[in-house]
């Protein structure tokens, strides 16, 4: 681990100023991802600015009937919050499907969505990685791709030497639920506060795989707002993984079903939590029979690119996420009828 300075400013504004002033500074909240990466040499900041105790730890009611999750609220407290459990089960379930009790006690609302994408080669500084060392190439292409992306990728075997190539996936469960909930992100930055849709927070690699989000340097998440949901909304999170617990998703599905339609986000399949807008369009106003959902998912996954690789590659994710969406929506509609 490279030496770094540590600062715990008096308030959020000062924290933002400190990070903004130092090009190689990072925020520290729960630390569950950053400290991991510090040890691996993946993160090499000169300055670590601790915001864990600066933002709100509370979950508060919003005037419009929604909820505001303070950035420092822990994943376990949010999952345990009665209002979240009753009104946003998809979020509680996603949080509870993530990591472990110990990690959820440390991980925060602001930090969880900002964890880096996950890839065994990104985490190993002895292998080339465009995300870690821009332009060095992508070791994952043709390698161990079980946990890698099939959506938002141009080809089944993209050029590993192209500087834009990255097939890592975003590992957060919480983020998939927040994407489906149309959450809003409250951000404070060097040039003031702004609000952005959660679905705009993450970005595809494009020509800059090193950048996971659309936040500028020094921008800090201060809260995440959950919009109110119409009465009768049903939601669920379904995670499919290699162990029964304590494993990253192979694929996951967050579904929010209202009278108007379905909001659907997929995890484990892309560099971002993947909002399945194409499928949503096809499902709008339709009865959610298995056949209708299958057709919608066929359309959503038409551009999917299975990644060949050692140990069989990840082509299985395409039928798997397809089947998981069908099953999740079947469960929600069956429950609604019951």
């Amino acid at each position: 681990m490279k030496p770094f300075s540590y600062a715990r400013p008096g308030d959020v504004a000062e924290a933002v100023r400190e990070v903004a002033a130092e090009p190689n500074a990072v925020f520290l909240a729960g630390g569950t991802n950053l400290v991991d990466h510090l040890k691996l040499g993946v993160a090499t900041p000169d300055l670590v600015v601790d915001v864990r105790t600066l933002t709100s730890q509370e979950v508060t009611d919003l005037p419009d009937g929604g909820l505001r999750l303070g950035a420092a609220s822990t994943n376990s407290e949010v999952a345990a919050d009665r209002r979240v459990r009753e009104r946003y089960p998809v979020l509680a379930q996603a949080l509870l499907a993530g990591a472990t009790g110990q990690l959820r006690n440390a991980a925060t609302t602001g930090g969880n969505p900002l964890q880096r994408t996950r890839c065994v080669y990104f985490q190993d500084v002895t292998t080339p990685c465009n995300k870690r060392e821009p332009g060095s190439g992508c070791s994952a292409v043709g390698g161990y791709t079980r946990y890698h992306a099939v959506l938002g990728v141009d080809a089944a075997l993209p050029d590993p030497d192209a500087p834009g190539t990255c097939i890592a996936t975003h590992p957060s469960d919480m983020a998939v639920a927040l994407a489906a909930l149309d959450a809003q992100v409250q951000v404070l930055g060097p040039s003031g506060a702004r609000t952005l849709p959660f679905t705009d927070l993450h970005r595809l690699p494009g020509d800059d795989p090193a950048t996971d989000t659309t936040l500028g340097h020094g921008e800090l998440i201060t809260a995440i707002d959950l919009p109110p949901l119409p009465a009768g909304t049903r939601s669920a999170y379904r995670k499919v993984r290699d162990r029964a617990s304590y494993a990253f998703a192979l694929v996951s599905v967050a579904a929010v079903v209202t009278d108007d339609g379905v909001r659907l986000a997929l995890g484990g399949v892309a560099h971002t939590p993947w909002r399945a807008t194409r499928a949503e369009e096809l499902l709008r106003g339709r009865a959610l029979t298995d056949d209708v959902v299958r057709a919608a998912m066929d359309a959503e996954l038409a551009a999917a690119q299975p990644q060949p690789g050692i140990d069989g590659g990840n082509g299985f994710k395409i039928p798997l996420v397809h089947r998981t969406v069908v099953a999740t929506l079947r469960q929600l509609t069956t429950e609604a009828q019951a």
């Binding site: 065994v120 390698g143 161990y144 050692i310």
Partner: peptide, 18 residues
């Protein structure tokens, strides 16, 4: 999962080795 291209176990930690 051994990656023969580089000669090492790709998933060499307890998050990926289940």
């Amino acid at each position: 999962v051994f990656d023969p291209r580089i000669g090492q176990v790709a998933n060499h930690d307890l998050a990926e080795y289940h």
